[in-house]
């Protein structure tokens, strides 16, 4: 292209949408909460051996107001349902959810009165990570898949039925 030849080296031309998506996916701050044994694997993923800081997401936010990503790590008990729903609604847009492990995705082996049979009944889920519990590699693969999903998002996509702006 002729235009790049005329501008200095330190300037890159891109679309605003690509740049916003790049910023969002490279500084995604997860909400720091774990529900069961999957949280141990999640913590391991964020520790130095697997080191999620490489993706710019090592800061677990203790407040949902500062978080972009909710990793539902573990079984969701019926008494936890209103808490998770409130935490999700307190997160500012754009926001994403990873359902980590079999229990969060479908109830797992806990098909009983105390456990919600899948967290997608109360909040929208972007990525399901299977496993019991998933190894850190699996969670990282899920996060990379979420990055790929964020790359396809439109800036002016409107809102979906959950009020999210982060839609394709």
């Amino acid at each position: 292209m002729g235009l790049e030849d005329k501008i200095p080296d330190s300037i890159i031309l891109t679309s605003l949408e690509k740049m916003v998506n790049w910023a969002r996916k490279r500084s995604m701050w997860p909400l720091g909460f774990g529900l069961a044994c999957c949280a141990i694997e999640m913590m391991s993923t964020f520790m130095s051996k697997y080191d999620m800081a490489r993706y710019g997401m090592e800061v677990f936010r203790p407040s949902p107001r500062q978080a972009d990503l909710m990793i539902v790590a573990g079984r969701v008990s019926m008494k936890m349902v209103p808490v998770i729903r409130t935490l999700y609604e307190q997160m500012p847009n754009p926001k994403w959810v990873i359902s980590m492990g079999a229990c969060a995705s479908c109830g797992g082996v806990f098909n009983n009165y105390a456990i919600l049979q899948g967290v997608d009944r109360i909040i929208p889920v972007d990525i399901y990570v299977p496993g019991c519990p998933p190894r850190p590699e699996q969670l990282m693969d899920g996060i990379l898949k979420l990055h790929a999903k964020i790359d396809t998002e439109k800036l002016k996509g409107g809102r979906d039925e959950w009020g999210r702006t982060s839609v394709r």
Binding site: G107, N111, N112, Y113, A114, I115, Q117
Partner: peptide, 13 residues
């Protein structure tokens, strides 16, 4: 729930 005649499963998988 701890009674033996309480249903073991919550819903059909």
């Amino acid at each position: 729930p701890l009674r033996r005649d309480f249903p073991l499963t919550y819903e059909v998988p």
